[in-house]
Simulated scan of single mutants.
Amino acid sequence: MILHTFTLTLGSTRPIHGSAHELRGFFATKFNEYAELHQHNADKFIYRYPVVQYKMSGNVPTVIGINEGAEVLKQIFDEYQEIRLGENTYQIVERGISLKDEEFGISDKIHSYEFATPWLALNQENYRKFYTLKGKPERDEFMRKILTGNILSMAKSLNYDVPGQIKCDAQVHFRKDRLKDVSVMVFTGKFQANFLIPDLLGIGKSVSRGFGAVRQLKGEYGGDSACSSSLTHGDRT
């Protein structure tokens, strides 16, 4: 399957400080008529994989549109001269644009990825279940299923029917983070899968706010094994 992507990066006269959540808030408020930018329709949340995703890559605001999301970004990417993130306003003096047709879906090769931003893998129910599991093997298997489910959910929302079994490995550790002033558990590290995912697309929860962005690691091979994972604790408080 081919995904059409539009990647927008923004530059100012000074370093930009802010979060992906604040970047999303700017676009959602400025262009509220486009549901793709904020996933709400008449105050009701749209439960689907976000086709517009926001990242802060270093101090560079980055917005990625996928398919219909790419078409929206084409229309509005230059319709503003400044952005407001939190209490700070930045004049926009540079816009970087990248239009691509990218492969997505099951592959006959294993591809290696790293989480460029923390992976928010667990909802409240799975969070509680994770802590009831005894020992590393059970938790590893549980996280493998979560990873596979996240990939399948992303594929379904993008109207891609997965024609075969997803194989994967993962080497991740978990730590605490904050999402809208709430403490959450996130995962960082690497994974391998027989599945092609374009760079910086997110998997898991809250990907529109920058979580779970992946980046392919060129030249690394994950092996043709059954799905498994290696899990470590990154925050031992």
Rank of each mutant, 00 (worst) to 15 (best):
S19L: 03
E79T: 07
Q192M: 11
L231P: 04
G219L: 13
N126F: 09
T62C: 13
V52D: 00
A155S: 15
G222M: 03
G69M: 04
K205N: 10
C168E: 12
F31R: 10
G223M: 05
I83V: 07
A193Q: 09
E36N: 11
A42W: 06
Y113H: 13
F26A: 03
I166D: 11
I110T: 15
V51E: 12
D108R: 10
S98H: 11
T237F: 10
H21W: 04
Y160G: 06
P61L: 10
P198V: 05
N194Q: 11
V51R: 09
P137R: 06
P137W: 01
A121E: 04
T29A: 15
D169C: 04
E87L: 07
G86D: 00
N150E: 14
F191Y: 06
Q124K: 13
G96W: 03
K180V: 08
G18R: 06
F211W: 11
P163C: 01
G86T: 05
N194A: 06
L85N: 01
K180N: 15
I16M: 02
I46F: 03
Q124L: 10
F77W: 15
V60T: 12
S228N: 14
Y80T: 00
L8T: 01
E36P: 04
Q39S: 13
I106T: 07
G65W: 01
L217V: 13
W119K: 02
R84M: 05
K134L: 13
E36G: 03
T148P: 00
N150Q: 14
G202C: 09
E141S: 14
H4Q: 15
E22T: 04
L8A: 02
K44Y: 13
V172W: 02
K134V: 15
N67Y: 03
T188H: 06
S112W: 10
L37K: 06
A155P: 09
F104W: 10
I110V: 15
Q124S: 15
R139F: 06
R178Q: 11
F104K: 10
E79P: 00
A35D: 05
T132S: 14
V172R: 02
P137F: 01
D181F: 04
I92W: 06
E220L: 15
M1W: 06
F45T: 12
Y127S: 09
D235C: 02
I97F: 06
T89Q: 09
Y221K: 13
D161S: 11
T232D: 11
M143C: 10
Y34L: 07
L85P: 01
Y34E: 07
M56N: 02
E71R: 03
A35K: 09
N67G: 02
G210Q: 08
P118S: 13
F195T: 11
A20E: 02
Y47I: 05
H17D: 04
E68F: 00
N88L: 07
S183K: 14
V72G: 02
Q53W: 12
P15Y: 05
K129S: 07
P15K: 13
Q171V: 13
F6E: 02
C168K: 07
P50M: 11
I46N: 05
V60D: 00
R215A: 12
G86R: 00
P61T: 10
Y160A: 08
G149V: 08
G11R: 12
N123I: 03
Y131S: 07
D78Q: 12
L37N: 05
F104T: 08
S228H: 15
F6I: 01
I76R: 05
S208A: 14
G219H: 09
S57C: 09
K205D: 01
P163K: 01
A28T: 07
